[in-house]
Design a protein around this nucleic acid. Structure first.
Length: 305
DNA sequence: CTGCTCCCCTGGGAGC
DNA sequence: TGCTCCCAGGGGAGCA
């Protein structure tokens, strides 16, 4: 379940392996997972998939990643539910879920003044093939004509839930007539929160998932934003949450799933009050919360406007 | 504006 | 052991 922390951890581990590298060969799987609606129809497919390009930057906004090449080509990457990017000595041509494999080579040191990680002794032994695999295909690739085109598209996303100053996120959430959980999951309000970190953030903020935001004081909204950011920040440090599929570019699992307080724990005791955690469907997602610690607030508390 | 419901897709787990 | 069934979930479309 890659959400912001998993995607950010992947970005970091992947950057260490592909920044400065040239894509010298590519192999595609049987399924077409490339969205080319954002580029001209005549653009050659291999060009859109960055063949011959040198990677200079890996950007992230919410759960979205984008690979920027030195000649301005951009390939967006979304992991969906089950996506992963890992490295192998050879591409497995019989794996029907391996959608794209790149053979990388020729790291160019210091290109365009950018600081590059010093080559380690392990570099020479690193498998040369970078493989994007996504069995469920909720994820995929998007070709962009330029970094500017990417920026324009990403403008429809809200600000990144982790990198953005809390006060800005508070401003976007306060006064909304929506339920807290639905708002957190809305990527156009703030980008990066998925089902896990929404539940964990709500629990830490002591707010009910169905809480209407316009009934809350500013202090409570601040608590919510800070709860979500704290959880995500801790999760990045733990390498994310690995429930089934997620691994980083070094094929390592995260460990934050061990620190989940409510997600996946319906029927167990609340870690604070010991009452049984409950599960319900809210905003189309299974939602776990403590009915005792997370009470609905019906009146408007505290100063607001 | 808001909240639904459905759909995409596969594999892991539960139940028999 | 092996089968079927259900469900997870990000995101977009369509509808009340």
């Amino acid at each position: 379940m890659p959400e912001l922390p998993e995607v950010e951890h992947l970005r970091r581990t992947l950057a260490a392996r592909i920044i400065g590298m040239r894509i010298e060969e590519l192999v595609e799987g049987p399924h077409d997972v490339l969205d080319r609606s954002q580029v001209s129809a005549s653009a050659p497919r291999t060009r859109l998939l960055l063949l011959g390009a040198t990677v200079v930057e890996l950007r992230r906004r919410g759960k979205h990643l984008a690979i920027i090449s030195s000649d301005g080509r951009v390939l967006g990457l979304h992991l969906g539910m089950s996506g992963r990017v890992t490295f192998h000595a050879e591409p497995d041509r019989s794996d029907r879920h391996a959608h794209l494999a790149w053979r990388l080579g020729g790291r160019l040191e210091g290109r365009s003044g950018r600081h590059l990680p010093a080559p380690s002794t392990a570099d020479a032994h690193q498998p040369a093939w970078c493989v994007f695999r996504d069995p469920r295909r909720f994820g995929g690739l998007t070709a962009w004509a330029s970094p500017k085109a990417l920026d324009d598209a990403w403008a429809s996303l809200g600000p990144d839930a982790l990198e953005t100053d809390a006060s800005i996120l508070v401003g976007r959430l306060r006064g909304l007539r929506r339920q807290a959980k639905a708002a957190l999951l809305d990527q156009s309000l703030l980008a990066g929160v998925g089902n896990i970190y929404a539940d964990e953030g709500l629990f830490r903020a002591r707010l009910h998932p169905n809480q209407r935001l316009d009934r809350l004081s500013d202090a409570a909204i601040v608590r919510l934003v800070e709860g979500v950011q704290a959880v995500m920040s801790a999760a990045v440090d733990s390498g994310g949450s690995s429930l089934r599929d997620y691994v980083d570019a070094d094929a390592r699992s995260g460990s934050y799933q061990d620190l989940h307080l409510v997600y996946g724990r319906a029927g167990s005791a609340c870690p604070f009050c010991e009452r049984t955690l409950r599960s319900r469907v809210t905003a189309g997602r299974t939602t776990v919360f403590c009915p005792d610690c997370q009470r609905l607030i019906h009146n408007r508390r505290g100063a607001r406007r």
